[in-house]
Amino acid sequence: MRTPLRWVAWSALALAALGVLAAMGPDYALGQLAFVATFAIAGLGVVLIVGQAGQISLGQGALMALGAYAQCLLVRLGVPAPLALPFAMALGAGGGWLASLPARRLGGLYFAMSTLAFALIIEELLVRADGLTGGAAGLAVPAFAVGPLAADSAAREALVSLLVLALAWLACRHWVDSALGRAWRAIRADEAAAQSCAIDPARAKTSAFVAGGALSGLAGGLYAHWIGFLTPEQFGLMLSFELLMLAFIGGARHLAGALWGALVIVAIPQLIALARDLLPDALASTAGLEALLFGGVLVAVVLWRPQGIAGQR
């Protein structure tokens, strides 16, 4: 009974998406899709760290920054964008490893604070290393291109993002189903009990941060191209919180939570902007109206699905 119902729901959703696409114009919708997919990749990273391994990371934005800057600098040096992406991932993974080091001594909230400090340090370093990063003045990012082939339209951006998201999804599926995933869930449930079953909590946490960092770096690498201009302030604490919110809204314990969360975080503000056009002028021009409505939607989603959209009701 459940399966056909699910199909009906999915096709209704697909039809609604097509309707929105028709109403908004294809480029606008595909541009959204590129960002949704990109943020879903970063969201997968948060799901591994927060949802699977049970660690709170307040520094995901900084890991994305590492990937974005690595990608930008390599591409500026002439490395083809797809070949630069593994390096962006590697730097993100390295950052994740570094951020996880305090987990060997600290736990819970104290460790969360250390990831916050990590994010602040990275942002500051990006400002200070202005010879490399352009500092606060920023850095222009070339298009995502291989030879004459460039992802320079919304459709191609969306295609690249979806392709990368699919690969990232498969990797996550594999990790979650492996012994690694079981170790993550074991330390999430009870560190002491996990340890008594020969699981090394420090190693498990580190591996979650390395995998999560790699995904954030990957998302950062794509984000850099779609935005085309990097400044350290884009990767401030706000982004880290946004990513954390993404995972909780979508459902941190499920991989699908990253997709739902990205859809809410990226697309809802845009839908609100569209809906606002229908309001009377006096109301529509109220400053901060969109932020207010967005907050309302978030609260409603949390009340409706405390475990996240992908979670159990």
Partner: peptide, 10 residues
């Protein structure tokens, strides 16, 4: 970026 696309296209 999204707002610019909306204003250009829609």
């Amino acid at each position: 970026v999204l707002a610019a696309r909306k204003l250009i296209q829609r």
